[in-house]
Computed example of a mutant assay.
Amino acid sequence: MEHSELDPTADVEDRDYESALRPKRLAEFEGQPRVREQLGLVLDAARHRGTAPDHVLLSGPPGLGKTTLAMIIAAELGTGLRISSGPAIQHAGDLAAILSGLADGDVLFLDEIHRLSRPAEEMLYLAMEDFRVDVIVGKGPGATAIPIELPPFTLVGATTRAGLLPGPLRDRFGFTAQLDFYAVGDLTGIVAASAGKLGVPIDADAQGEIARRSRGTPRIANRLLRRVRDFAQVRGHARVDRGVSRAALELYEVDERGLDRLDRAVLDALCRLFDGGPVGLSTLALSVGEEVETVSEVAEPFLIREGMLVRTPRGRVATRAAYAHLGMTAPSTNPALFD
């Protein structure tokens, strides 16, 4: 359920709503119980010592709460928060400007930290360990390194691809948290809390219906809740019950397993056009009229997690679960189908 690229206000609306729905304290954060407990210990210990906590690395798929946790860390510590991202820091000087503007105990949040440029990454090593950066003035033999002392700060790095982080950078984080997809029960609680903040009267059955179709992701759950709310308002429903939520989600082409139009198009092409595969990614993308990156990064991860698609050396292959979801009978004559 992505907004159309033709609507430039859609992303702004999403960001505004996400900000309003974010929990402000660790106790309000639904789901991720182990990460919550571990992070709480790190923050409590730092407060008792009166020092900045260790640097924190948060990894996991998009939409699971990495940015929210960074904001919660700053709120729990009562310090300032500075937000940037790896792609935005192209030069070491960009990072030096950010670091030199930090106050004592501040939290610096770097999203997509695995995409930092190499010069900025090397500068970050020294800043994380010694709270110091060396700024080079001049060029050639006359260049001079001017050391700048930094106040103690906490770096919170977020990444969707932890495997791309260089070892020296990963080892400098004192605490690493891996965020997992949420259980339906946790998502139901998130939908209930968000509905309360948005002033949406909603039944428990409707909350569960939205949660089950949210692909284990709070960001998607909140997005679907807003679409259900819009449907209820426009169609004149004073309260969102299960029937209203089901009708709304069917209108927005989100089925009972959380698959959207693109997911079903990929499965349909794989099963109907290519007899279950194997088929190459580029051919599959062409058959559904999408870019290769869209299919591989948006549709495939969820379909693989649901056990409906498999990546093999010979190409993509549909599973029996894919055929069952489409209401089709899996062929028994294709030996490669379930190999």
Rank of each mutant, 00 (worst) to 15 (best):
P33S: 02
G63Q: 13
A96Q: 15
P62M: 14
L69E: 06
D94Q: 11
L124A: 11
E28G: 02
D54I: 09
V107N: 07
V133Q: 10
Q90D: 04
R36C: 03
A45H: 15
F153T: 02
F131T: 00
V42C: 06
G86R: 04
G31W: 04
P33K: 03
P87C: 06
P33W: 01
D111W: 07
A96I: 13
P33L: 03
Q38P: 00
A75C: 06
E30Q: 13
L110S: 10
R132K: 15
G63D: 08
T67L: 07
H114R: 04
A27D: 11
A45E: 10
G93N: 05
A70P: 04
G78F: 11
L26C: 10
L126H: 14
I148Q: 04
D54Q: 15
K24A: 11
L77G: 09
M128Q: 07
A96H: 11
Y125N: 00
L77N: 05
G138W: 10
I73C: 13
L81K: 07
F29K: 08
L77T: 05
G101C: 13
S100A: 09
P147C: 13
P53T: 08
A127E: 11
A46M: 07
P62R: 10
F153E: 03
G50L: 06
R82Q: 02
M71Y: 09
A120L: 03
E76G: 01
L26S: 11
A92G: 12
A92V: 14
P151T: 00
T68M: 12
G105Y: 15
G138H: 09
G142R: 03
V137Y: 05
R34W: 01
E37V: 01
G93S: 04
L108A: 02
R34T: 09
P147N: 07
D104V: 08
G63H: 10
L41V: 10
G142S: 08
D104A: 14
G50D: 02
A20M: 15
M123S: 07
E30P: 02
S19D: 13
R132T: 06
A145Q: 05
Q32D: 13
G86M: 07
L69T: 08
G101W: 08
P61D: 10
S85A: 09
A143Q: 13
F109C: 08
F153K: 00
A75R: 12
A145L: 14
E129Y: 07
L81R: 10
A70L: 13
V137T: 06
M71F: 08
E129T: 06
G78K: 00
E121F: 12
E112C: 09
L43G: 08
H114M: 09
A143P: 03
I73W: 10
D130P: 02
G93H: 04
L99M: 10
V42K: 06
P61I: 12
L39H: 01
H114D: 12
G105I: 04
Q38L: 11
L39F: 03
P23S: 11
D94M: 14
M71T: 04
V107P: 01
A96E: 14
L150A: 12
V135M: 00
S85Y: 02
T144Y: 09
A97V: 11
Y125V: 05
E129P: 00
E149I: 01
R25V: 05
V56E: 05
E149R: 15
F109R: 01
L95P: 11
L95S: 00
I89R: 02
A97W: 09
A70Q: 08
